[in-house]
Design a protein around this nucleic acid. Structure first.
Lengths: 164, 164
DNA sequence: TATTGTTATACTCTATAACTATA
DNA sequence: TATAGTTATAGAGTATAACAATA
Protein backbone atom coordinates (compact mmCIF):
# COMPACT_ATOMS: atom_id res chain seq x y z
CA UNK A 1 0.00 0.00 0.00
CA UNK A 2 2.90 2.34 -0.82
CA UNK A 3 1.82 5.91 -1.41
CA UNK A 4 -1.09 5.71 0.99
CA UNK A 5 0.47 8.22 3.35
CA UNK A 6 1.36 10.43 0.43
CA UNK A 7 -2.27 10.47 -0.68
CA UNK A 8 -3.49 10.99 2.85
CA UNK A 9 -1.25 14.00 3.27
CA UNK A 10 -2.25 15.50 -0.06
CA UNK A 11 -5.94 15.08 0.75
CA UNK A 12 -5.52 16.73 4.11
CA UNK A 13 -3.79 19.73 2.57
CA UNK A 14 -6.41 19.99 -0.15
CA UNK A 15 -9.08 20.17 2.53
CA UNK A 16 -7.20 22.99 4.19
CA UNK A 17 -7.40 25.10 1.06
CA UNK A 18 -10.94 26.00 2.10
CA UNK A 19 -9.56 27.97 5.01
CA UNK A 20 -7.31 29.97 2.68
CA UNK A 21 -10.14 30.61 0.25
CA UNK A 22 -12.41 31.88 3.01
CA UNK A 23 -9.75 34.30 4.19
CA UNK A 24 -9.28 35.57 0.65
CA UNK A 25 -13.05 35.89 0.40
CA UNK A 26 -13.20 38.33 3.29
CA UNK A 27 -11.51 41.07 1.30
CA UNK A 28 -14.15 41.05 -1.43
CA UNK A 29 -16.02 44.34 -2.03
CA UNK A 30 -19.50 44.45 -0.52
CA UNK A 31 -22.08 42.96 -2.85
CA UNK A 32 -19.58 40.70 -4.57
CA UNK A 33 -19.86 37.09 -3.47
CA UNK A 34 -17.07 34.60 -3.79
CA UNK A 35 -18.90 32.85 -6.61
CA UNK A 36 -19.36 36.13 -8.43
CA UNK A 37 -15.69 36.90 -8.09
CA UNK A 38 -14.73 33.53 -9.53
CA UNK A 39 -17.10 33.95 -12.44
CA UNK A 40 -15.79 37.44 -13.21
CA UNK A 41 -12.25 36.11 -13.14
CA UNK A 42 -13.02 33.31 -15.58
CA UNK A 43 -14.83 35.64 -17.97
CA UNK A 44 -11.96 38.09 -17.71
CA UNK A 45 -9.38 35.45 -18.41
CA UNK A 46 -11.13 33.48 -21.15
CA UNK A 47 -13.39 36.08 -22.72
CA UNK A 48 -17.04 35.89 -23.74
CA UNK A 49 -18.60 32.45 -23.69
CA UNK A 50 -21.82 30.47 -23.31
CA UNK A 51 -23.18 29.04 -20.06
CA UNK A 52 -22.07 25.57 -21.06
CA UNK A 53 -18.45 26.57 -21.48
CA UNK A 54 -18.53 28.50 -18.23
CA UNK A 55 -19.94 25.43 -16.52
CA UNK A 56 -17.02 23.35 -17.73
CA UNK A 57 -14.46 25.89 -16.63
CA UNK A 58 -16.02 26.28 -13.20
CA UNK A 59 -16.46 22.57 -12.67
CA UNK A 60 -19.96 22.86 -11.25
CA UNK A 61 -23.48 21.82 -12.23
CA UNK A 62 -25.13 23.86 -15.01
CA UNK A 63 -27.87 24.90 -12.61
CA UNK A 64 -25.25 26.60 -10.46
CA UNK A 65 -23.77 28.48 -13.38
CA UNK A 66 -27.21 29.54 -14.51
CA UNK A 67 -28.11 31.00 -11.12
CA UNK A 68 -24.84 32.85 -10.68
CA UNK A 69 -24.89 34.17 -14.23
CA UNK A 70 -28.36 35.57 -13.58
CA UNK A 71 -26.99 37.26 -10.48
CA UNK A 72 -24.11 38.87 -12.36
CA UNK A 73 -26.46 39.99 -15.11
CA UNK A 74 -28.77 41.58 -12.56
CA UNK A 75 -25.82 43.42 -11.06
CA UNK A 76 -24.99 44.78 -14.49
CA UNK A 77 -21.56 43.17 -14.53
CA UNK A 78 -22.36 40.74 -17.30
CA UNK A 79 -24.25 41.20 -20.53
CA UNK A 80 -26.11 38.45 -22.42
CA UNK A 81 -26.77 38.47 -26.12
CA UNK A 82 -28.33 35.70 -28.19
CA UNK A 83 -25.99 33.12 -29.65
CA UNK A 84 -26.50 33.35 -33.43
CA UNK A 85 -25.41 29.73 -33.77
CA UNK A 86 -27.90 28.27 -31.29
CA UNK A 87 -30.99 30.03 -30.09
CA UNK A 88 -31.21 27.91 -26.95
CA UNK A 89 -28.11 29.64 -25.72
CA UNK A 90 -26.66 33.09 -25.25
CA UNK A 91 -23.24 34.63 -25.01
CA UNK A 92 -22.05 36.06 -21.70
CA UNK A 93 -19.67 38.98 -21.76
CA UNK A 94 -18.27 41.32 -19.13
CA UNK A 95 -19.72 44.83 -19.24
CA UNK A 96 -17.53 47.82 -18.52
CA UNK A 97 -18.90 47.75 -14.98
CA UNK A 98 -17.92 44.09 -14.82
CA UNK A 99 -14.41 44.92 -15.94
CA UNK A 100 -14.20 47.65 -13.34
CA UNK A 101 -15.38 45.30 -10.63
CA UNK A 102 -12.85 42.70 -11.71
CA UNK A 103 -10.09 45.29 -11.63
CA UNK A 104 -11.06 46.28 -8.10
CA UNK A 105 -11.06 42.61 -7.08
CA UNK A 106 -7.67 41.99 -8.60
CA UNK A 107 -6.21 45.00 -6.85
CA UNK A 108 -7.48 43.90 -3.46
CA UNK A 109 -6.30 40.36 -3.97
CA UNK A 110 -2.90 41.44 -5.17
CA UNK A 111 -2.40 43.51 -2.06
CA UNK A 112 -3.54 40.68 0.18
CA UNK A 113 -1.48 38.03 -1.56
CA UNK A 114 1.61 40.23 -1.75
CA UNK A 115 1.43 40.55 2.03
CA UNK A 116 0.67 36.90 2.73
CA UNK A 117 3.12 35.46 0.23
CA UNK A 118 5.95 37.84 0.97
CA UNK A 119 8.36 34.92 1.32
CA UNK A 120 7.39 33.26 -1.95
CA UNK A 121 9.37 33.53 -5.16
CA UNK A 122 7.53 33.94 -8.45
CA UNK A 123 8.75 30.47 -9.25
CA UNK A 124 7.06 29.05 -6.13
CA UNK A 125 3.77 30.66 -7.09
CA UNK A 126 4.01 29.46 -10.66
CA UNK A 127 4.81 25.95 -9.53
CA UNK A 128 1.81 25.82 -7.21
CA UNK A 129 -0.50 27.20 -9.89
CA UNK A 130 0.84 24.70 -12.38
CA UNK A 131 0.41 21.72 -10.06
CA UNK A 132 -3.13 22.78 -9.22
CA UNK A 133 -4.04 23.16 -12.87
CA UNK A 134 -2.65 19.73 -13.58
CA UNK A 135 -4.60 18.27 -10.65
CA UNK A 136 -7.78 19.81 -11.95
CA UNK A 137 -7.12 18.56 -15.48
CA UNK A 138 -6.54 15.00 -14.28
CA UNK A 139 -9.77 15.07 -12.31
CA UNK A 140 -11.70 16.48 -15.24
CA UNK A 141 -10.45 13.77 -17.58
CA UNK A 142 -13.01 11.05 -18.13
CA UNK A 143 -12.13 7.81 -16.40
CA UNK A 144 -11.84 5.57 -19.44
CA UNK A 145 -12.62 2.44 -17.45
CA UNK A 146 -11.01 0.33 -14.78
CA UNK A 147 -7.82 -0.55 -16.61
CA UNK A 148 -4.71 0.43 -14.74
CA UNK A 149 -2.37 1.11 -17.62
CA UNK A 150 -2.54 3.86 -20.16
CA UNK A 151 -3.21 3.17 -23.80
CA UNK A 152 0.20 2.33 -25.27
CA UNK A 153 -0.68 4.13 -28.48
CA UNK A 154 -0.58 7.38 -26.58
CA UNK A 155 3.00 8.18 -25.85
CA UNK A 156 3.13 11.56 -24.15
CA UNK A 157 -0.45 12.63 -23.68
CA UNK A 158 0.12 14.35 -20.35
CA UNK A 159 -0.82 17.97 -21.03
CA UNK A 160 2.05 20.34 -20.57
CA UNK A 161 -0.04 23.40 -19.98
CA UNK A 162 -3.51 22.28 -18.93
CA UNK A 163 -6.20 24.95 -18.75
CA UNK A 164 -3.59 27.70 -18.95
CA UNK B 1 1.72 46.05 -10.68
CA UNK B 2 4.10 43.17 -11.41
CA UNK B 3 2.83 39.81 -10.22
CA UNK B 4 -0.81 40.73 -10.66
CA UNK B 5 -1.33 38.11 -13.34
CA UNK B 6 0.57 35.60 -11.24
CA UNK B 7 -1.78 36.20 -8.34
CA UNK B 8 -4.82 36.15 -10.59
CA UNK B 9 -3.82 32.79 -11.98
CA UNK B 10 -3.11 31.32 -8.56
CA UNK B 11 -6.46 32.50 -7.25
CA UNK B 12 -8.29 31.00 -10.19
CA UNK B 13 -6.63 27.64 -9.66
CA UNK B 14 -7.31 27.74 -5.94
CA UNK B 15 -10.99 28.26 -6.71
CA UNK B 16 -10.94 25.21 -8.95
CA UNK B 17 -9.78 23.01 -6.08
CA UNK B 18 -13.40 22.90 -4.97
CA UNK B 19 -14.27 20.88 -8.02
CA UNK B 20 -11.57 18.34 -7.20
CA UNK B 21 -12.66 18.11 -3.59
CA UNK B 22 -16.26 17.48 -4.58
CA UNK B 23 -15.24 14.68 -6.87
CA UNK B 24 -13.17 13.11 -4.12
CA UNK B 25 -16.15 13.53 -1.80
CA UNK B 26 -18.33 11.36 -4.01
CA UNK B 27 -16.42 8.21 -3.11
CA UNK B 28 -17.05 8.58 0.61
CA UNK B 29 -18.91 5.71 2.33
CA UNK B 30 -22.59 6.38 2.99
CA UNK B 31 -23.10 8.19 6.27
CA UNK B 32 -19.67 9.81 6.19
CA UNK B 33 -19.81 13.46 5.23
CA UNK B 34 -16.87 15.33 3.81
CA UNK B 35 -16.46 17.23 7.07
CA UNK B 36 -16.48 13.99 9.04
CA UNK B 37 -13.83 12.53 6.77
CA UNK B 38 -11.61 15.57 7.26
CA UNK B 39 -12.00 15.44 11.01
CA UNK B 40 -11.23 11.72 11.13
CA UNK B 41 -8.12 12.33 9.05
CA UNK B 42 -6.85 15.07 11.35
CA UNK B 43 -7.46 13.01 14.47
CA UNK B 44 -5.77 10.05 12.82
CA UNK B 45 -2.77 12.09 11.82
CA UNK B 46 -2.28 14.20 14.96
CA UNK B 47 -3.78 11.97 17.65
CA UNK B 48 -6.13 12.83 20.50
CA UNK B 49 -6.77 16.51 21.14
CA UNK B 50 -9.19 19.10 22.46
CA UNK B 51 -11.80 20.95 20.43
CA UNK B 52 -9.67 24.06 20.45
CA UNK B 53 -6.70 22.37 18.86
CA UNK B 54 -8.92 20.69 16.31
CA UNK B 55 -10.42 24.09 15.50
CA UNK B 56 -6.95 25.48 14.78
CA UNK B 57 -5.99 22.55 12.59
CA UNK B 58 -9.21 22.67 10.61
CA UNK B 59 -9.12 26.45 10.21
CA UNK B 60 -12.81 26.92 10.96
CA UNK B 61 -14.92 28.58 13.66
CA UNK B 62 -15.14 26.71 16.99
CA UNK B 63 -18.89 26.37 16.55
CA UNK B 64 -18.27 24.33 13.43
CA UNK B 65 -15.83 22.01 15.15
CA UNK B 66 -18.22 21.59 18.03
CA UNK B 67 -21.08 20.54 15.79
CA UNK B 68 -19.06 18.11 13.74
CA UNK B 69 -17.41 16.62 16.80
CA UNK B 70 -20.86 15.97 18.24
CA UNK B 71 -21.78 14.24 15.00
CA UNK B 72 -18.73 11.99 15.08
CA UNK B 73 -19.36 11.19 18.73
CA UNK B 74 -22.94 10.24 17.96
CA UNK B 75 -21.73 7.96 15.18
CA UNK B 76 -19.44 6.26 17.65
CA UNK B 77 -16.31 7.14 15.72
CA UNK B 78 -14.96 9.52 18.34
CA UNK B 79 -14.82 9.23 22.10
CA UNK B 80 -14.75 12.17 24.54
CA UNK B 81 -13.27 12.05 28.00
CA UNK B 82 -12.85 14.95 30.42
CA UNK B 83 -9.65 16.92 30.21
CA UNK B 84 -8.02 16.55 33.64
CA UNK B 85 -6.23 19.87 33.15
CA UNK B 86 -9.34 21.94 32.37
CA UNK B 87 -12.85 20.87 33.15
CA UNK B 88 -14.34 23.18 30.54
CA UNK B 89 -12.83 20.97 27.90
CA UNK B 90 -12.59 17.35 26.91
CA UNK B 91 -10.25 15.19 24.89
CA UNK B 92 -11.37 13.78 21.57
CA UNK B 93 -9.98 10.44 20.48
CA UNK B 94 -10.75 8.04 17.65
CA UNK B 95 -12.56 4.88 18.74
CA UNK B 96 -11.77 1.57 17.10
CA UNK B 97 -14.81 2.13 14.89
CA UNK B 98 -13.38 5.53 14.03
CA UNK B 99 -10.07 3.96 13.07
CA UNK B 100 -11.87 1.41 10.94
CA UNK B 101 -13.86 4.12 9.20
CA UNK B 102 -10.69 6.10 8.56
CA UNK B 103 -9.00 3.03 7.13
CA UNK B 104 -11.93 2.47 4.77
CA UNK B 105 -11.77 6.11 3.72
CA UNK B 106 -8.05 5.95 3.09
CA UNK B 107 -8.43 2.84 0.98
CA UNK B 108 -11.09 4.36 -1.19
CA UNK B 109 -9.17 7.58 -1.62
CA UNK B 110 -5.96 5.78 -2.41
CA UNK B 111 -7.67 3.84 -5.17
CA UNK B 112 -9.26 6.97 -6.57
CA UNK B 113 -6.10 9.05 -6.40
CA UNK B 114 -3.93 6.28 -7.80
CA UNK B 115 -6.21 6.23 -10.83
CA UNK B 116 -6.48 9.99 -11.21
CA UNK B 117 -2.83 10.76 -10.56
CA UNK B 118 -1.39 7.92 -12.61
CA UNK B 119 0.93 10.32 -14.36
CA UNK B 120 2.27 11.93 -11.21
CA UNK B 121 5.58 11.09 -9.60
CA UNK B 122 5.81 10.85 -5.82
CA UNK B 123 7.93 13.96 -6.02
CA UNK B 124 5.12 15.87 -7.79
CA UNK B 125 2.65 14.88 -5.09
CA UNK B 126 5.04 15.80 -2.30
CA UNK B 127 5.77 19.15 -3.90
CA UNK B 128 2.08 20.01 -4.20
CA UNK B 129 1.40 18.94 -0.61
CA UNK B 130 4.34 20.98 0.58
CA UNK B 131 3.33 24.13 -1.30
CA UNK B 132 -0.23 23.84 0.00
CA UNK B 133 0.96 23.43 3.58
CA UNK B 134 3.15 26.48 3.19
CA UNK B 135 0.26 28.46 1.73
CA UNK B 136 -1.93 27.50 4.64
CA UNK B 137 0.79 28.38 7.15
CA UNK B 138 1.30 31.82 5.62
CA UNK B 139 -2.42 32.51 5.76
CA UNK B 140 -2.66 31.33 9.34
CA UNK B 141 0.16 33.60 10.44
CA UNK B 142 -1.13 36.70 12.17
CA UNK B 143 -0.70 39.81 10.07
CA UNK B 144 1.57 41.78 12.37
CA UNK B 145 0.35 45.09 11.01
CA UNK B 146 0.56 47.01 7.79
CA UNK B 147 4.33 47.22 7.58
CA UNK B 148 5.73 45.69 4.44
CA UNK B 149 9.02 44.42 5.76
CA UNK B 150 9.60 41.64 8.22
CA UNK B 151 10.92 42.29 11.70
CA UNK B 152 14.71 42.46 11.26
CA UNK B 153 15.19 40.65 14.56
CA UNK B 154 13.71 37.55 12.98
CA UNK B 155 16.25 36.19 10.57
CA UNK B 156 14.87 33.01 9.06
CA UNK B 157 11.45 32.53 10.48
CA UNK B 158 9.95 30.99 7.37
CA UNK B 159 8.87 27.55 8.52
CA UNK B 160 10.65 24.76 6.69
CA UNK B 161 8.08 22.11 7.52
CA UNK B 162 4.81 23.88 8.33
CA UNK B 163 2.03 21.71 9.73
CA UNK B 164 3.84 18.59 8.62
C1' DT C 1 -35.05 12.29 -29.59
C1' DA C 2 -31.13 14.90 -27.68
C1' DT C 3 -29.26 19.07 -25.96
C1' DT C 4 -29.04 23.83 -23.64
C1' DG C 5 -30.36 26.16 -20.11
C1' DT C 6 -33.68 27.42 -16.11
C1' DT C 7 -36.22 26.86 -11.81
C1' DA C 8 -37.70 24.64 -7.40
C1' DT C 9 -36.04 22.32 -3.70
C1' DA C 10 -33.00 20.32 -0.36
C1' DC C 11 -28.57 19.48 1.69
C1' DT C 12 -23.79 20.58 3.42
C1' DC C 13 -20.67 23.65 5.30
C1' DT C 14 -19.64 27.77 7.64
C1' DA C 15 -19.99 32.20 10.47
C1' DT C 16 -22.17 35.26 14.00
C1' DA C 17 -24.17 35.99 18.29
C1' DA C 18 -25.86 34.68 22.66
C1' DC C 19 -25.15 31.57 26.22
C1' DT C 20 -23.13 28.16 30.02
C1' DA C 21 -19.51 26.50 32.73
C1' DT C 22 -15.05 26.85 34.34
C1' DA C 23 -10.47 29.25 34.87
C1' DT D 1 -13.03 39.16 33.90
C1' DA D 2 -11.47 35.93 30.42
C1' DT D 3 -11.62 31.58 28.09
C1' DA D 4 -13.51 26.80 26.16
C1' DG D 5 -17.10 25.11 24.24
C1' DT D 6 -22.22 24.80 22.80
C1' DT D 7 -26.50 26.05 20.51
C1' DA D 8 -29.67 28.77 17.52
C1' DT D 9 -29.89 30.97 13.47
C1' DA D 10 -28.79 32.68 8.96
C1' DG D 11 -26.30 32.71 4.63
C1' DA D 12 -23.53 30.94 0.78
C1' DG D 13 -22.63 27.27 -2.43
C1' DT D 14 -23.89 23.22 -4.63
C1' DA D 15 -26.57 19.06 -6.54
C1' DT D 16 -30.84 16.68 -8.13
C1' DA D 17 -34.93 16.57 -10.58
C1' DA D 18 -38.45 18.41 -13.38
C1' DC D 19 -39.20 21.47 -16.98
C1' DA D 20 -39.08 24.66 -21.44
C1' DA D 21 -37.19 25.78 -25.75
C1' DT D 22 -34.56 24.61 -29.54
C1' DA D 23 -31.55 21.50 -32.34
Amino acid sequence: MTGNDLYEELTRHLSAVGSVRRKLGRILPAGCSDASATMLAVLGRHGAMRIGRLTELLGVDPSVTSRHAAQLTMLGWVDRKPDPADRRSSILRLTSEGHAQLAELSDRRSRELAARLAGWSDEDIRRLAWLLSRLRADFDAQRTGQHTFADPSEGARRPRTPAA
